[in-house]
Write a protein that binds this DNA or RNA. Structure first.
Lengths: 332, 332
DNA sequence: GGGTTGGTTTGTAACGCTTCAACTCAGGTT
DNA sequence: AACCTGAGTTGAAGCGTTACAAACCAACCC
């Protein structure tokens, strides 16, 4: 089962190996008759160029590292699929790496990708910093970050516009006639909490509502359980609400459970809007209105940026911000 | 930014390249002092072996193809993660490929993996047949299938024991005192429908119930919408039911929506059990009892089988069947 | 007829590593 | 003193490709 080499093809076609190599890489330089002869030889022998040899000679391979916190995160799964789709069409190969936000693992993966002479990495950086960026740069790895930060103009990155998302959710609720909005956020130090809340406030301001029109309920984590508790707090509040915007779908589902359990109707008594549009949002008892992010497009865009960086010497680093959109369902 | 080669390390350490190569691959043959000298040279120079060169010389690479219908399928996402985890620990690299059940795409991916001299593939075959297996074999690609079939004893495969799963779901319901069970299946030609139903029937038989104790409701697809319709049909039935087992969670969630909408209570009036234990099962309005499959373990097992096939000449092909387990929640 | 041209083709030196037969040499045997 | 042993080391031949400079050659020009 010895693989066919370029030399055998050359012999079969009665030409030199250089000609076969040209056939593979620059067919247009060959005389038409030669081209046909080589093509035939390739077909009859079932020749398959050896990627390793190619890479050794070229100095770089076709691999691209996809370094993610965890593919199981549905958002990242979409990103992975989007990246793979595009990279495949441009002849690249995707090497999947899960870091679990562990800088050690991340480091080892980058090291491995370097040995493979990967063309670059699409990465959710575990610990982004100037030093980190510089170090990866120094390794000679090109990269595109999945990260929402304006601090690194010398790296390409793609991210979601959380402020815009929060704004569209709140605008939607206000347009439905709700006077005030209760915004359930995650931990205050997380960018998502901050930005989505800011979008919410901006919508209120734009609609001419006073600042108190947005009431904040902060939770300790973006979980179902925390959502349930937030829901109970909201119901027990002295100033009842008719509209709740949650910075994430799990929180929203939790709030809905609490509300339903208390015998209140959704959306009649209380309208709820989430963020992320996870699968559970659509399949919930009362399907949840949510801010949807096109993770597939995001992954594709990252892939495109990387390929551009590799192929275009005039490449300029840039940051792509993706606008989400609202998916209206029964909960609002 | 020229990469350091083995030759430079050899010079730095004052030894031959063969010795450095030995240091890398069989350190135990070196004299301790030499070993230290080489180690030091490697460190100071920051040497990183070139994977392509290694592969060219060895005749095979470190890559393993992970060829799936679609990583976005939550089950396959888990499989992917499980496979990656294990392959990483044994120094392999995962190449992600999505086929969308398109034999053309699948074919192209296998071709590509062959050029990369991948060690093998873990695959959800788009169209399994004797001919297909033989062809992939002929290409010289080792493989492990994610497929539930006993027809190919000459290939390793891993799958879920659907019969056992159906049985545990039904046993659970019967143990709760339900006299009869309505089993909502997907299309009758799909293996999952058949096997899960069979498990259900087996449980009834084992519990000494008559055959009519299991009533079948067939649907056209494993979707939420079909579940809703099945639910309506069940509610409208002349022979009311108190327990429903659905061959998949989406069907179960649909049934639950129909039941709740009709003002009946879960689990008081009707108990529901699903299959797959997708995320939405846990986050549903009434958390859904479901048959859980450890996709991570499945992926890991497939990876292990492949590695064994590569490394152990005495390897025997085999089929691994994974027993699922029931996750009891509020719906039953 | 000799010279030029430009389209084609080719010989061969890398690319960086592994492997294996061959070699070295200190220490032990006879 | 001649010989053997075995641990440690090494030179060089690949592995399959690419790319470059050189060679070839038919057609064309003076």
């Amino acid at each position: 089962m010895k693989a066919v080499s370029i030399r055998q093809v050359a012999r079969e076609a009665g030409v030199s190996v250089a000609t076969v190599s040209n056939f593979l890489n620059r067919p247009e330089v060959l005389a038409p008759t030669t081209r046909d002869r080589v093509r035939e030889a390739v077909d009859t022998l079932g020749y398959r160029p050896n990627q390793a040899a190619r890479q050794l000679s070229n100095g770089y391979g076709t691999g691209v590292g996809l370094v993610l916190f965890d593919v199981r995160n549905p958002f990242l799964t979409g990103v992975a699929r989007g990246a793979e789709d595009h990279l495949h069409t441009v002849g690249r190969t995707v090497v999947l790496c899960n870091t679990d936000v562990d800088t050690g693992k991340e480091e080892r993966y980058l090291e491995m990708l370097l040995q493979q002479q990967a063309q670059g990495v699409l990465i959710t950086p575990s610990e982004l910093s100037r030093a980190w960026v510089d170090r990866v740069r120094a390794l000679g790895l090109r990269m595109v970050l999945f990260h929402n930060s304006t601090d690194y103009p010398d790296v390409c990155s793609v991210a979601v516009d959380d402020v815009a998302g929060g704004e569209m959710a709140a605008t939607h609720l206000l347009a439905r006639g709700h006077e005030r909005i209760t915004c359930v956020t995650g931990p205050a130090h997380m960018r998502q909490s901050v930005d989505r809340l800011e979008g919410c406030r901006r919508a209120a301001a734009l609609a001419g509502r006073p600042e108190e029109a947005v009431e904040v309920v902060e939770t300790g984590a973006f979980t179902l359980d925390q959502g349930r508790r937030a829901g109970e707090r909201i119901l027990a509040s002295s100033r009842p609400t008719t509209a709740v915007f949650c910075a994430n779908d799990l929180l929203a589902l939790g709030v809905m459970q609490a509300v339903t359990r208390a015998g209140r109707r959704i959306p009649d008594d209380i309208a709820v809007v989430g963020f992320d549009d996870i699968e559970s949002a659509a399949t919930a008892g009362v399907p949840l209105t949510s801010v949807h992010v096109d993770s597939h497009a995001l992954g594709g865009a990252a892939a495109r940026l990387l390929v551009e960086e590799v192929e275009d010497p005039a490449h300029r680093h840039r940051r792509l911000l993706f606008a989400p959109h609202l998916v209206e369902r029964a909960s609002s």
